[in-house]
Structures are given as C-alpha cells and as structure tokens.
Design a protein around this nucleic acid. Structure first.
Length: 714
RNA sequence: GGGCGUAUAGCUCAGAUGGUUAGAGCGCUGCGUUCACAUCGCAGAGGUCUCAGGUUCGAAUCCUGAUACGCCCACCA
C-alpha cells in the first residue's frame, strides 16, 4: 500500500468493478424486504451542481446502507426532457446560425433537439457516476422515451374522460421570448425600481372634473375597460355608474364598484385592464367588461391601439404615453415605487399577462386526495414543517394550466373538428373525424407542461401502466429526496398523480434537504457566478472527500453555507483511514481472518469493542432519522480518536509485549474486526476508499464491501 | 401584507426532554519526524451562547418582545 491515499488511482477502477459485477442491481439480494428510490431526474440540459451532489449523496447513503442490510434495493435513475429549458438551448444554437425555430418548422426542429439529446443528453448522468452513486443504470429512463410517452397520453385520457380537462380563454403568464404560457409556479419575481403614475380620467359629463387612478403600467391604459373603486369607499361610492373618458384613446368607460379593490392603495381608484392583468380579468368577468387585448404574443402592441403606438414594445409605449399625458395635463404626479415584476424562470424575460386559449386540469379532487394523504401521514415530510406548507398550498391551489406553446415535449393528444370547432381525445391520428364524420381533424399544437410528465415519474419509472415485475416489487418507493423549490412544482403533483393512477402514495417519506449557499450566505447560481462545481472539487479532493465534506455539513434544517475546509477534513480523514488500514495490514500474518466477533482479552480490547457497539447504534439511529452529518461525525470520532489514537497505540504495545503467539493473534483479530466494521459503517459515506481497502484485506469468503453485511448491534 | 427559518469560538456548524469546567472541523500558538499516517502526534489559546425582559434553586436550552440576515407565499394595480 502506498503511504498516501490517492483517489485518482482508485475511484474509476472501483466504480467499474461495481458496475461489472452488477452490484447496483436488486439481483444481489434475494430478500423479500424491498427498498426503492427514484432519483429526481435532472434536466437534460443540466450539469452537475452542488444541489445535485448533495442530493445524490443523501440517496446513495440510504441505498448503500439498505443494500448492506440485505434489502432488495433499487435506485432508478433518469433524465427529464425539460421542455422549455431544452428548447431554449437548441434555439440559442440556431440563433448562432441566424435561424429561429420557425425557420426550421416543427418537425425539423424536434429532430434537431433529438440530435442534441443524443450528443449531450447523458452528460449529467456521467457526472453523477463520478460521485459514486449506485444507481441501477440498466433501468435508466427518459421522460420522452416511447413507453413514457404512452403513459403520459394514458394519464391525460384518464383525466379527459373524467371531465377534468377543459379549455378556456384566460389571462395567463406569457413569456414573449419563449412564446409560451407558463404556470404560476414558473414565474419568478424580480424587484424593480419603477414609478407609480397618477393619471386623471376626466368625467364625460363634465370634463373639468376627473378621478385619479394610480398605476405602475400606464401603457396598459390603452386597453382599459373601466375604472374600479371599492363600493364601501365613501369617497367614490356615489360615482359608481358614472362615465369617464380614457385619456389618449378618448373612449368612454364606466366607473364600477368591486370589493377586490383595495381603498388604501394609491388613490383607491384603479384602472381595469381585463386583458393584461389577473385581478382586472376577474373583475371584468364579473362585470361583463370587454376584453381588449393590446399586447400580442410576440410582446408588442397590436393593431387595436392608436397608430402611433402600434408595434412599440410596452416599455417604449410607456414612455410615450407618460409624455403624452404630461403634455395634456392629465398626469397628476409620479412617485418612485419599488415593485416586483414577473419574469420567466427559464429565460428571465419580462412576463406579459395576456389572454390566451389554454388547457387546464381541474384540481378540486386531486388536491383533496393529496391533502388527505398528507394529513394522515401516508406521506411524511422531513423536516415535518413542509407538510403544513404543502397542505396550505393545496388548500388554495388553482386549476393547473397544463398546455405550453412550445414544440419540445409531449404533444397534447387532442384533435379539433374543423367543421364543428370541437375537440376530442385520440391517442393516434384519427382517419376520420368522429364528430362531423367528414373533416380531417387537426391536432392541437400545444405540448404538456414538463411537470405534467414528471408528476408520473415514480410509477412510470417502474413500468406503469404495465403491471411489470418492477412495478409490483418496488412501487411505492420508500423515500424521495429533493430540494424545497420544487415541492409544489413536483412533489405534490407526484403525490396526487400517484394516488389517482395507482391508488397508492408514490413514496412514504419525503426528505427536503438543505439548500447549499455560498459561504457568504448567497444563493449558489450559475448566472451570478457564485456556484461551485462539484466536479472540480472531486478533482481536487477526490469523490470520497467531497462526499464526506458535503455530508459533514448536512444537519437538521439549517441551510448550508458551503465550507470547503470540510472537504479538506474529508481528505485528511480518508488518508487516516488508509494509513490505519495500512498499519493493521502490516501487522497481520498472511492468513485469512473470519469476521466473527472476538472476545477481547485486555481491558483495551474490551473497551474498543464496546465503543464499536455504541457507534453502530448511533449511526443506525442517525441515518434512520436522516441526520447524515451526525452519523458521519460519530464514526469519525470513533475511528480517529478511539480506534487510531487510543486502541492502535495500545495494540502496538500489546503486540510488542505479548508472551505467546496467541496473544499476538488475539490483538490482530481485534484490529481487523474493528477495522472491517468501521469500513462497513463508513462505506455509505465514503464508498470508494472503503471498498479499495476491503479488497486488500485477508478475509474469509470475501466478495465486496458494497454487499457485505451491515454491522449488527448486539 | 401573511408565513417560515436562522442568530453559539476568527470561519462553518453541533449542542433531545433546562443541571457539574459549552463541543467539532478548519484556522491559530508551542513542542515533537527511525516506531501506520507531517494529509501526523502531543499540549494549548480562543466564547458576557444577538439584545431586553420573564419563568426557575438553576436557562445557550422554555416564554414574551426587539434587532439582524435569509427564504417562501400573496390579485396592492
């Protein structure tokens, strides 16, 4: 053995050894006890970041421990097609060639995405291997592969038949860059310094009088349908029913009363732009106001505004309109105002709320069953508080807009009769229209929200809708580990999808792990340049040390301010383990040892054996509570302080002063026994080095540490 | 506007059910290399546990309030 541990000489070889021997397959156990996990499928466009690394380590620790405990384990990996994200990547490539997706057309564009997928789609999975995850790669799934797509269609048809799918024209979040609608959860808010403009709307009857409204978006005034006040507002109550003149366009609009108006904001009177604001849309519906769309899907003002405003973007229109108001004396005042502007979570462009025909999934019943499962603890959250937060969200959830106007994804299996303008479901191209029996129906162009397919992941990953052997054996899964930012987007939707389609919860426990922040407490993000690439860390410290360092920092609910010195500690620890093993090896004669528990002759022997018992118990307890940092720290302390510092030093003397050969052998037996058991406890945390050492030890019936028996407490 | 989380050594964090000198890693200081490991060993310095009240024989730990930082949700235009 070398004097120093060198991960570069070990990791790749050991990983290949595990793969070759198929140790990641459930086949290594014939037990009836099952343990399964599905990986949160990373985006196909992604590359490994700290969040992935942390999550991978958590799941790998669990799977490895259960595997050693004799469970029939499987950890299913996969990748998500990530509709918008992927489409954006390929569109950017096209842009370099001076083309847009529309130049290629839908069919060619999708081919192009598949090409891209073929080339770089598996990068992230290869990166996962570098940290040593023991996924069963033979079961890798992709959310767009053939079988998966069938499952998506089936899921949709199920909802469709239940009457939970409907089409509606609503104001939706629209990204003019991606040219698609987004769900509420896909919108992010960015703080922006803006202005609050106070605008005079003159009365039709007496143009010397006016009512003042405050707005942050004066340009939308071109689409105003009313001015609204709170009917309980004494200042304005008696004005309800009056008519005012919309500035610039000189159109007459009514003053209406609605409780949704907050009298304490601005002047208490608001302009109502039904087509470009969610609240206004609601008000307009109640009052039967006209929907005047002034901004188009490409984000520019359309033909329904005065000529001089046509084809401006909203920002330009805003400046122009403020200028015009100022000149005509209709601008009362302007104030600085900091507000949250909505942006697309994929491309960062400003979201433009606008009316659009979209497909929705009714949430009423689905929310109910999910709520029930959480309430009855069929699904348990760790930390617990996420259960309540999830329930609160479900109680208020709105119907899910499941259609997107992009091309990359599962196209809706819905067709339109041209004659009767009706829609129907069909899983293949209909030869004849079932409605009018005449026309050639055309397929709806929209694709599903990516999360619609991800919501089916835990059971489709095992073969659903087919009742495969895997599905019967491994579903429901035991644990789902993920980040908190996709609880609503993904976790909850898996819960109700699982219940709806399989009548079972998809996982018994949900681990919401800490978020990895920079040392300064900032979010790690690629765009801010604050991320740390785990692959570089692996390069620098080795995979085990990286896992050690990450794991050491996981505890309780605390977010992690990433501390690289912990990886250094991990590297040192690996070296310590290496050298302690080297010492033990050097002191053994060339014979085979059994792993039966020795009795121990001296007080030191007995003490270390007892301490080992104790640490086994602690590690078991902490892993079962998902307290991975604590578990690791317990072994660390035992191994370094108790075993190396105290026992090995004692053992040197015991060997030196031994009176008989048996006494020497007794000490050797303790050394190797404690060492092997330590390696077992350490294996889920630092798998490579422990396997490498194990392979060097002279043991009877030796196979591989990864499938060795987990130490049992007495 | 509502909700949640965190505040302990220079840095990153542990400190169930309140109880003797508050711990770890990294860093720092001193000494030590034929004896597994200098990626090491031994010894050591370093904390009014954010602040203010309260409960208690006793509080880092429980209660109330304040402050700071961070996160989530929301139709304040």
């Amino acid at each position: 053995m070398e004097k120093q541990y060198n991960p570069k000489l070990v990791e790749e070889r050991i990983y290949r050894f595990w793969e070759r021997k198929k140790f990641f397959s459930p086949g290594v156990s014939s037990s009836k006890k099952k343990y399964s996990i599905v990986i949160p499928p990373p985006n196909i466009t992604g590359s490994l970041h700290m969040g992935h690394a942390l999550n991978a380590v958590i799941q790998d620790i669990l799977i490895r421990q259960k595997r050693m405990q004799g469970f029939k384990t499987v950890w299913v990996p996969g990748i998500d097609h990530a509709g918008i994200a992927t489409q954006n990547v390929v569109e950017k490539q096209l842009k370099k060639e001076g083309k847009t997706r529309f130049d290629l057309g839908r069919k060619k564009f999708i081919e192009r995405v598949w090409e891209w997928k073929k080339k770089s789609g598996n990068t992230i999975l290869e990166q996962f291997k570098k940290i040593g995850v023991s996924c069963d790669w033979s079961r890798t799934r992709f959310t767009m592969d053939k079988e998966y797509s069938k499952a998506v269609v089936l899921a949709f048809s199920h909802y469709f038949k239940k009457g939970w799918i409907y089409r509606d024209k609503r104001v939706v979040n629209w990204c003019p860059r991606c040219k698609t609608s987004l769900s509420d959860l896909e919108v992010e808010y960015k703080e922006e310094k803006g202005k609050l403009w106070y605008i005079r709307y003159r009365f039709a009857e007496d143009t010397r009088k006016f009512i003042i409204v405050a707005t942050t978006r004066p340009e939308t005034l071109l689409g105003d349908a009313a001015v609204a006040v709170n009917p309980r507002d004494k200042r304005y109550k008696n004005l309800i029913g009056e008519k005012v003149i919309l500035p610039v366009v000189e159109r007459e609009i009514p003053i209406i009363g609605d409780h949704l108006v907050d009298p304490s904001f601005g002047t208490g009177a608001v302009k109502v732009t039904p087509a470009h604001d969610f609240l206004d849309y609601q008000i307009a519906k109640k009052h039967n106001l006209e929907l005047i769309q002034i901004i188009d899907e490409d984000g520019f003002l359309n033909k329904d505004v005065p000529k001089s405003y046509q084809e401006l973007n909203p920002r330009e229109a805003r400046e122009k309109i403020v200028q015009e108001l100022r000149e005509s004396g209709l601008l009362e005042k302007e104030e600085d105002y900091i507000h949250q502007v909505p942006v697309c979570y994929r491309c960062g462009s400003l979201i433009e709320p606008l009316p659009s025909e979209q497909w929705f999934l009714r949430m009423t019943d689905l929310a109910k069953i999910a709520l029930e499962a959480i309430k009855n603890k069929k699904v348990k959250f760790y930390p617990q508080r996420w259960a309540r937060i999830s329930s609160d969200w479900l109680k208020k959830v709105r119907d899910w807009c499941i259609s997107r106007q992009i091309w990359w994804g599962h196209q809706l299996p819905v067709w339109q009769c041209k004659n009767k303008n009706k829609f129907f479901f069909s899983d293949k191209k209909p030869s004849r229209c079932p409605i009018c029996k005449k026309c050639k129906p055309s397929r709806v162009e929209d694709v599903f929200d990516t999360w619609f397919s991800s919501a089916l992941w835990p059971f489709v990953a095992f073969g659903w809708p087919k009742r495969t052997k895997d599905f019967k054996e491994f579903y429901p899964t035991d644990v789902l580990s993920t980040a908190r930012d996709i609880i609503f987007l993904w976790v909850i939707r898996m819960i109700f999808s699982g219940l709806e389609f399989t009548k079972k919860i998809p996982f018994r426990k949900v681990i919401i792990h800490a978020t990895v922040l920079t040392k300064e407490g900032k979010r790690m993000s690629k765009s801010l340049g604050t991320g740390i690439d785990p692959l570089l860390l692996i390069e620098k410290y080795g995979a085990d040390a990286t896992r050690f360092g990450i794991c050491w920092q996981i505890s309780g609910l605390q977010d992690i301010r990433f501390d690289e010195t912990k990886l250094l500690a991990g590297k040192k620890f690996c070296n310590k383990v290496w050298n302690a093993s080297r010492f033990v090896l050097m002191n053994l004669e060339k014979k085979e040892f059994s792993l039966n528990k020795p009795k121990g002759r001296t007080a030191a022997d007995k003490k270390i054996l007892k301490e080992l018992e104790r640490v086994i118990a602690k590690v078991d307890r902490n892993i079962s509570k998902f307290e991975f940092g604590k578990a690791l720290q317990e072994i660390y302390r035992f191994f370094w302080n108790k075993f190396c510092d105290i026992y090995i030093e004692k053992a040197k003397k015991q060997i030196k002063n031994a009176k008989t050969k048996k006494e020497v052998k007794d000490t050797q037996r303790i050394l190797i026994y404690v060492l092997v058991n330590s390696l077992k406890l350490l294996h889920p945390f630092i798998p490579f080095i422990t396997e490498e050492i194990y392979q060097k030890l002279p043991l009877k019936n030796k196979k591989a540490l990864i499938i060795e028996k987990w130490p049992k407490q007495k």
